[in-house]
Design a protein around this nucleic acid. Structure first.
Lengths: 158, 158
DNA sequence: ACTCTTCCTACCAACTAAGTAGGAATACTG
DNA sequence: CAGTATTCCTACTTAGTTGGTAGGAAGAGT
């Protein structure tokens, strides 16, 4: 599996939006107490993503119906659905297209012949295995699973 | 998962080599009755792979220890192990490096912080799921499974 | 010697990813 | 109604990778 920077950033941004709204982390970025809208600039800072690049990604996410946006002063982004109804797969597909590609084409139309005919089934099986993982993991899962790293670290950075 | 042309060609070439040695398909390419060595030129023709490109791939496969080669007239390639001891994963790793990459790096050293910390586990789970499929499928499996498609389809297209 | 084949290096064109820049639309504030 | 903050959108640049080609050198048999 190849996870591009774009996909990676998209996931991190979605998690940061979810945390800002649901009151999870409070990663100490800008300290904005606006309520539920997260600004692109603060997302970029919290997760170390180039701002201009992130804006294009947020646009894709909004077009895919995962984010709701609001312009003007006090604008920002929010999830369109609760964090436990958005899966990792949703985000990946929104910015990256198909989950599995063979020579640039979706797995099911690889077009093999002769002794290679069986390969299609392999790609389909791989595709299914990946989908099972990413479609059963929600943003909420990722936020609550708080692993070894206890997130808050209230001590200010350097 | 992203399967590059290189990986795809490698798999198809390996299957063609296995078929030539084991006497499986007989895809009607050149009709060489040499015995067990498959020539690059005939592999390229049988599976529609650019010859010069294929030669580089075969080289990688040989360096990875999956193929044995012989030069000169009556030269060619053969598997170093029986087809049921070579998995799809072996071939993929030989030409493509790591099976799962995040922003160009192997999955386990993604380096997340804050609310994104849980992502590492997702990539690891995906990696495991892919590995399970590709490491449990051997070349022999693919050759014997001969699916619904009975290859020749002698009727010419439009 | 001659021919056949693998081996190896260098090269090229096209595409994509990653990131930048600048401005237009929109919404709130005073 | 002016002003400002923010999203929105397009176009561009830069660098790396992928897919593919060319041309020979090294080795093996006849």
């Amino acid at each position: 599996m190849f996870v591009s920077a774009r996909s990676d950033y998209a996931l991190r941004a979605m998690l940061a939006v979810a945390a800002a709204a649901g009151g999870g982390g409070g990663d100490g970025g800008g300290g904005d107490r606006v309520g539920e809208l997260a600004k692109a600039a603060s997302l970029a800072e919290v997760q170390d993503i180039p701002l201009s690049f992130l804006q294009g990604i947020l646009l894709d996410l909004r077009r895919a119906g995962l984010l709701h946006s609001h312009r003007g002063a006090d604008g920002g982004y929010a999830l369109t659905r609760p964090a436990d109804e958005i899966t990792v797969g949703d985000v990946l597909r929104a910015v990256g297209g198909s989950l599995t590609t063979v020579r640039g084409l979706p797995a099911e139309r690889a077009g093999y012949h002769g002794v290679a005919a069986g390969l299609t089934d392999v790609w389909l099986a791989v595709h299914g295995a990946i989908a099972t993982v990413v479609d059963s993991t929600t943003l909420a899962d990722l936020l609550t699973h708080a692993p070894a790293n206890p997130t808050p670290t209230p001590t200010p950075p350097a």
